[in-house]
Nucleic acid binder design. Structure first.
Length: 305
DNA sequence: ATCGGGATTGCCT
DNA sequence: GGCAATCCCGATG
């Protein structure tokens, strides 16, 4: 209780801090709340930018045409959660560095009847306002005090899709640096497939700060979604439907199979064998296979045929 | 003002 | 696979 208040004062630096600044957590206080002055908020977002630059031969200027527009987000929550699979989340940093990751795992939160949703029962609060905004609006919220999760609103009152895992495609060294900021000194280097295989990990790796809450994924210059020019859209037979994670306390709603992931992809955070048996019985293996993130060693080339 | 819980992660055994 | 870390948020009085 008394300890609580002290801890609050020493707000730990999080995803919003540049990696090289995060060495001493007591010197880098990052307040996750929205209740700060616009000037402070702006500064935080600027600090969130990475100083690293990254060259990639994988994406070219022509890929801009693959950016997904407003209309894409106008689908029901479950439909959008599936449609996200295989799409590429792009984060353009202040210095022009672009980080890219293919979405391989999502969860649908429907609002209303869905007891596991932050907007259950139509409940609208300061925190979850973005869930009620137009489809394509980003909802970023803090969890467990120290992490962030990124969602995208869909059609349906208070409905949104949680992004759970990405396959790193571009900017892995920057991602690794962003992710390593809170690790022990001398800890082993993260494998590529460990960079974005979790909802808060992807926020760290792509430098998604709390202040991205309520931004429009269809028009924002710093974060957007693209079609992957190198792969086909996810086919239904590639998609596993499983119960959502971390909501076991919500009774029957916890059992709804509204977590979706690409079968066999190494960047999925939690594999559910039972769900795979049910989802995929009789189906062939996916053709949207991962690049060589299977590999444990060194830099990999994500280019594929 | 206070309290309890949470759409997680990393480290340890 | 267990568990600590860590604190915002919303509910309650």
């Amino acid at each position: 209780m008394m300890v609580r208040r002290k801890r609050k004062m020493l707000a730990l630096t999080t995803l919003a801090a540049a990696p090289e600044q995060a060495v001493n957590k007591h010197e880098n206080r990052t307040d996750l709340t929205l209740k700060v002055s616009p000037a402070k908020l702006k500064k935080k977002c600027e600090n969130a930018q990475s100083a690293e630059t990254e060259q990639s031969h994988y994406f070219t200027k022509n890929d801009l045409q693959h950016k997904l527009a407003e209309g894409f987000f106008n689908q029901s929550c479950i439909s959008l959660a599936k449609a996200f699979l295989g799409k590429v989340l792009v984060r353009r940093c202040a210095d022009g560095t672009e980080l890219r990751g293919r979405i391989v795992e999502t969860e649908a939160y429907l609002g209303g009847e869905d007891k596991a949703s932050h907007s259950a029962g139509g409940k609208r609060t300061e925190r979850n306002t973005a869930m009620f905004m137009k489809p394509g609006t980003i909802y970023v919220y803090p969890i467990y005090g120290i992490y962030l999760c990124m969602n995208v609103s869909s059609e349906g009152e208070g409905a949104a899709v949680l992004l759970r895992s990405l396959e790193p495609l571009q900017g892995q060294p920057v991602m690794r640096q962003l992710r390593a900021a809170r690790h022990k000194e001398g800890a082993r280097q993260l494998k590529d497939k460990e960079l974005c295989n979790g909802p808060s990990k992807l926020c760290q790796a792509l430098n998604i700060p709390r202040c991205f809450d309520r931004r429009d994924l269809a028009s924002d210059p710093e974060v957007w979604l693209e079609k992957d020019p190198h792969t086909n859209p996810a086919e239904p037979h590639n998609i596993v439907s499983a119960p959502r994670i971390g909501i076991e306390s919500h009774g029957e709603w916890a059992k709804k199979p509204w977590r979706f992931y690409l079968h066999g992809h190494p960047c999925v955070s939690v594999v559910n064998k039972e769900a795979e048996r049910q989802s995929l019985s009789g189906n062939v293996m996916n053709n949207l296979g991962p690049s060589d993130v299977h590999s444990d060693t060194g830099q990999h080339n994500v280019k594929r045929t």
